[in-house]
Computed example of a mutant assay.
Amino acid sequence: MGMVSEFKEFAMRGNVIDLAVGVVIGGAFGKIVSALVDKVIMPPLGLLIGGVDFSAWAITLKAASVDAAGKEVPAVAIGIGDFLNALVQFVIVAFAIFLMIKALNAAQRKKEAAPAPPPEPSEEVKLLTEIRDALKAR
């Protein structure tokens, strides 16, 4: 089997396609959550705390400066606000995944808990049932 045909067989498996769809949807969902956190959740939260802009919240270890050659040296800072934004985004994504997995597990349990239909009675049992019903009718 040639490499191209092997790759085609591999790529067309259901699991690979499902994984690709999941990655694309996950990337889009990540962008939605980033926008939600950065533009919707954090600004009112910062306003409630006292006008704090979380995206600009940082601890500056070394201020920006200009070296002897006239080149600007950027500041060295710890971006606490960026970390908090990422943390909130993670919690939202993790909670959404938790809810999805919980729903899938509940559906799986319901599917497994459904009772199987009783097996079809054998010919002997059917014959004995007919005899019993005939005797009762007398």
Rank of each mutant, 00 (worst) to 15 (best):
F90I: 14
R109G: 04
K126A: 12
I59C: 03
V37I: 12
E9S: 14
E123M: 13
V4Y: 10
R13F: 04
A116H: 09
N85D: 08
F10A: 05
I41D: 01
R109A: 11
P121M: 04
I59M: 10
I101P: 02
L48K: 13
L45Q: 00
F10V: 04
K136P: 00
L84Q: 01
K71C: 02
V37P: 02
S34C: 03
V4K: 05
I17M: 09
M3S: 08
A103P: 07
A114E: 12
P119H: 04
A63V: 10
Q108M: 09
M1W: 09
V24K: 04
V66L: 07
V93E: 08
G46D: 00
V66M: 10
M1G: 13
E130W: 07
L61Q: 00
L84K: 02
A35C: 03
L84N: 06
Q89P: 13
P121I: 09
P44H: 07
L48P: 01
I101L: 13
A63P: 04
A75T: 02
E120V: 15
K136V: 13
F10T: 05
K62F: 15
K102Q: 13
V52D: 03
L47C: 07
L99N: 03
I59P: 06
A86W: 15
A56Y: 08
V91A: 07
M3H: 12
G26Y: 06
P74E: 03
A106V: 05
D18Q: 12
D18A: 15
A35F: 12
P115K: 06
A20C: 09
Q89Y: 01
V125Q: 11
G46R: 02
L48F: 10
S55L: 15
G14T: 09
L36H: 03
L36E: 10
N15A: 11
V73D: 02
Q108W: 11
K39R: 14
S122E: 02
A11N: 02
W57N: 05
V23S: 06
A28I: 15
L127A: 13
K102D: 11
G50W: 05
K31Y: 12
A96V: 12
I78F: 06
E6L: 10
M42L: 13
A77G: 03
F10W: 14
D133R: 06
L128V: 11
A64D: 06
A75L: 09
L48Q: 08
V37W: 06
V21D: 10
A64W: 11
I97T: 10
G46M: 05
P121D: 03
I17E: 04
A113Y: 05
I78P: 01
F7M: 09
